[in-house]
Nucleic acid binder design. Structure first.
Lengths: 228, 228
DNA sequence: CTCGTGCTTCGTCGCACGGCGAAGCATCCG
DNA sequence: CGGATGCTTCGCCGTGCGACGAAGCACGAG
């Protein structure tokens, strides 16, 4: 009758049913950092047998949440799309307690800096994004967030080479610990990749947490990015 | 082991299972505009019997997605929280085709201006939010988006009385047609309510679509809000 | 070629859950 | 008080789906 716009009840329910199973959510959360993992590893992470995992992965694939990359006899699965990662973040946000609970000690690293899909999130991600905006280096254009030429120059001068990056567009992405925006989209991914390459950031093995190097921390400071 | 942060697999799956049933998604979508509806009406909208609807509503209530208001022998259900509405919007966004499809004719009104929970969304909502930011009337403070005193003065001068509103905080909310941010949170709701009261906006009966009045359109224009 | 490995497909079982009708409570009306 | 209405609870049935083991395929190693 009146709900022909956007997502109807059946599409939303289909999406929900994909998320309705702990085994599948475990896989999705394991892939939330943008990595690609073989089916066997995902089965082990989810604590289920290979046959069951295969069925779950097939459903997620058919549902458009995962993408598949075949390499030899290994089959690597990853999130289909950055929007899927953004959706996972937003679902997290929907359940977070409103009076922002202080993170537990074990989560402190995760709250400070982590990767959301493949771009920088957490306190550092939010601070970096707002610093870019305050300097006037980042602007919301018609096709998304846009890094202006003098912004790219300034970043390059700080030791972040950005070949071809200014042509990319970014997207605002809501952060679940900060409840503020940070920079995602192709632009956000490219900038984060550059930070890895320049040694500003390192991955902390077990999860999605990141740690800025001493040098990176200094350079972030020079850009006006403060971690209070 | 390593996923004790934020939402774990079980909590996410629980949330997903609440969305996994068309009858429940129909109810949630019907409540997405922030209205409260009695159980019987929701049952009819979902196309199920009263007994079944009651069970679904109970699950949504226990799951924290709905809130209940008892009035006489009627029991009114509404979305528990603005975050639930934001979650529904973001799920919609996750499924929207990336090459932004032009809206069908029937959706044009909906894309132009609609209510997301209880605040203004659509092209008009996005334009209004960015106009506030460009004028420097709105700022991202530590506790959320903040309407600055001279911004409140300017809006009042344009015919939007805002008693007590500047004390409220807003929240960025992603729009699924525009893929850009608009103003939500208590501040967004208060501003939208003021627009209704001042006659700038009218509801279009069948759904969530809104229409600015001729006077409202003029006043939006004076504020620098363009509907291109 | 032959075997081992990684993954999918098939067949089967069992449980969880959605559906309804009937009965049970509350509330409003006369 | 008695009947109508709105909603919930109870009991039952059917099915959808997640679990596993076994078999089938593809690929790489020897």
């Amino acid at each position: 009758m009146n709900d022909d716009a956007a997502l109807n009840r059946y599409q939303l329910a289909e999406l929900g049913s994909l998320l309705a199973e702990p085994a599948r959510t475990a896989m999705l959360l394991a892939l939330a950092d943008g990595t690609a993992r073989p089916a066997g590893e995902l089965a082990q992470l989810a604590g289920i047998g290979a046959a069951t995992a295969s069925a779950h992965l097939r459903r997620l694939l058919d549902g458009g949440l995962l993408a598949l990359h075949v390499q030899g006899r290994h089959r690597y699965y990853r999130l289909a799309d950055e929007r899927v990662a953004a959706m996972l973040e937003s679902l997290t946000l929907a359940r977070a307690p409103l009076p922002c609970a202080l993170p537990k000690k074990g989560d402190a690293q995760l709250q400070r800096a982590r990767c959301c899909y493949r771009h920088l999130a957490g306190t550092l991600g939010v601070a970096f994004c707002s610093a870019l905006l305050q300097h006037g280096w980042l602007r919301t254009g018609s096709r998304g967030l846009q890094l202006l030429p003098h912004g790219a120059d300034a970043l390059a001068a700080s030791g972040l080479p950005l070949a071809g990056v200014p042509a990319l567009y970014g997207r605002s992405c809501l952060d679940w610990t900060e409840r503020r925006m940070h920079l995602g989209g192709p632009l956000g991914v490219a900038l984060t990749t550059a930070m890895f390459d320049a040694g500003w950031l390192r991955r902390l093995p077990p999860g999605r947490a990141l740690r800025p190097s001493a040098d990176g921390l200094r350079r972030f400071g020079l850009l006006g990015v403060r971690l209070d």
